[in-house]
């Protein structure tokens, strides 16, 4: 588990299964697999959009054909269009929007290639052909229950339910289509680049806090990044009280006797953060990595 994941787990309580994919350049990228809940929501949204589209096609078509042409041709034409729309909806959007459908876009998830290669049209075709068997077939079976003899329909139903429930039985939450196509669905929040805390502008002539190497050697990268997250939070009374607790604790641990006045807490922590990061990054340049306060320096 990387330091970044430990920090998220501590502060936000999120624990997502992470999967590593290797880009063609050989860089490992950590991706979070989308949760089953997100995927279900995305799918239900898509089915809703699809149904709305088909209803729209039928109503527009019916109005048009009732007035102009004979009914059976009209109906056929409409059902052909609806058939095409139903079968091409997912494929079209996943091709045009880099592995996203409208529902996936809303949920912030997308399809990527499992081994880090290119996401090919054939992979998208494969995963969407399977969709018919995974979802639309069980639906038809379910609707036609009772038409056939009990045992055979029960067996079919059991089989398809097992297939549909496949995402619950593997770590990457792949459905049958994903397995065949070699894809996974990942969650991808969009992040923004914030200002660097260590180079925050300071008023001229203002004295900052300074620390000795011994004081800075107490903490490691994990604590540094927790501190960074806390400092980046929006200023509220609650965050302020957390910060002053943190400040008091740091002072105790590194042996700073004089108390930090409340109005200087942020400034103290900011300076401590900058100095700590300077030292840890300096160490990293020479191959010394300190994970957290409990672990010794690790040579990399």
């Amino acid at each position: 588990m990387t330091t970044a994941d430990r920090v998220s787990e501590l502060l936000d309580g999120v624990k997502r299964p992470v999967r590593e994919i290797t880009s063609p350049e050989g860089v490992k990228l950590n991706v979070q697999t989308a949760s089953r809940w997100e995927r279900m929501t995305a799918f239900l949204l898509d089915v809703t959009f699809l149904s709305l589209a088909i209803i729209l096609i039928y109503s527009v078509g019916l109005v048009l054909f009732f007035t102009r042409l004979n009914l059976s041709i009209g109906l056929t034409f409409i059902s052909f269009v609806a058939f095409v729309v139903r079968n091409m909806y997912f494929l079209h959007f996943e091709l045009a929007w880099q592995g996203r459908t409208p529902g996936k876009k809303i949920c912030g998830i997308r399809v990527v290639s499992r081994n880090g290669g290119e996401l090919t049209p054939t992979a998208l075709i494969a995963r969407n052909l399977m969709r018919d068997v995974e979802f639309f077939l069980p639906m038809t079976l379910f609707l036609s229950l009772g038409e056939q003899s009990g045992w055979s329909s029960l067996a079919e139903l059991g089989w398809t339910i097992a297939l549909t429930a496949l995402p619950f039985f593997n770590r990457d939450r792949m459905r049958a289509g994903d397995i065949i196509a070699g894809t996974i669905v990942i969650k991808m929040p969009k992040r923004t680049l914030l200002d660097d805390l260590a180079s925050a502008p300071r008023q001229r002539g203002e004295a900052g806090y300074s620390f000795t190497p011994a004081q800075l050697a107490v903490y490691g990268a994990f604590e540094l990044q927790v501190l960074e997250e806390l400092l980046r939070r929006k200023q509220t009374p609650r965050v302020d009280s957390i910060l002053s607790d943190v400040c008091a604790k740091i002072c105790r641990n590194i042996g700073v006797e004089e108390a930090v006045p409340p109005q200087n807490v942020r400034k103290f922590l900011n300076d401590f953060y900058a100095s700590e990061r300077d030292m840890l990054e300096h160490g990293q340049l020479f191959g010394l990595y300190k994970d957290d306060k409990n672990s010794p320096d690790r040579k990399i």
Binding site: P189, R191, E228, R232, R277
Partner: peptide
Amino acid sequence: LDRNMLLYLEN
């Protein structure tokens, strides 16, 4: 060790 920058770059 700038967490925000690392996460941003990875993203």
